[in-house]
């Protein structure tokens, strides 16, 4: 999920959308340069990293990005994620996430929708729900944790099923 990687670097969701679009065009335009010895994901991630750093450099003001040495460490960690056999393809993980979203409570689902579909900032959600901001962020983080565990369980079951 390239957009996640870009946002992890920039810490700026708005800028990340722009960078993702730029990366999409670069990838489409240069895909013929991808040699068979390279994996698509590392190759695309290299382009994404370059575009993200370039975009942050030309931005006049905005959220602060992570330190360069940490971006380097994250790049290595992301490669490990790609190699994790349990990670499977993006599409399989997305399908598992879709399935898991049907299993969370309506309240949690609503919170996810407000944050991710309506794209409301945490502060606005807190205001609408009359809750402290830290409560909203802790709740969203726990939903993420539950969804992550659910997705890993789904993928594990699929892997076991194929292995039988």
């Amino acid at each position: 999920m390239l957009i996640g990687y870009i946002t992890a670097i920039t810490g700026d969701p708005t800028l990340s959308e722009d960078v993702f679009q730029e990366v999409s065009i670069v990838v489409l335009d240069k895909h013929a340069q991808l040699t068979s010895s390279e994996g698509f994901k590392p190759w695309a991630r290299t382009i994404a990293r370059f575009q993200a750093l370039k975009a942050v450099a030309r931005r006049r003001a905005g959220p602060i990005m992570l330190r360069g040495d940490i971006v380097d460490l994250l790049d290595t960690s992301w490669s490990a994620l790609d190699e994790d056999p349990a990670a499977l393809a993006d599409q399989e993980r997305m399908a598992a996430l879709r399935s898991c979203l049907t299993r969370i409570t309506p309240r949690a689902r609503r919170l996810v929708e407000m944050r991710y579909f309506e794209n409301l900032p945490g502060a606005r959600i807190a205001e609408l729900l009359g809750k402290p901001l830290n409560t909203i962020y802790v709740a969203i983080s726990r939903i993420h944790r539950a969804l992550g565990e659910c997705v890993r369980g789904e993928l594990q079951r699929q892997g076991d099923g194929r292995g039988e």
């Binding site: 999920m1 957009i3 996640g4 960690s77 997305m94 979203l101 991710y116």
Partner: peptide, 25 residues
């Protein structure tokens, strides 16, 4: 770092799923 990246990935995936309206069918 791995946990952070998993979260970042899922963060992007949720936005994509819900914006495209294909979550939960």
């Amino acid at each position: 770092r791995v946990a952070f990246l998993r979260l970042a990935r899922q963060h992007g995936e949720l936005a994509e799923l819900l914006k495209s309206g294909i979550a939960a069918g």
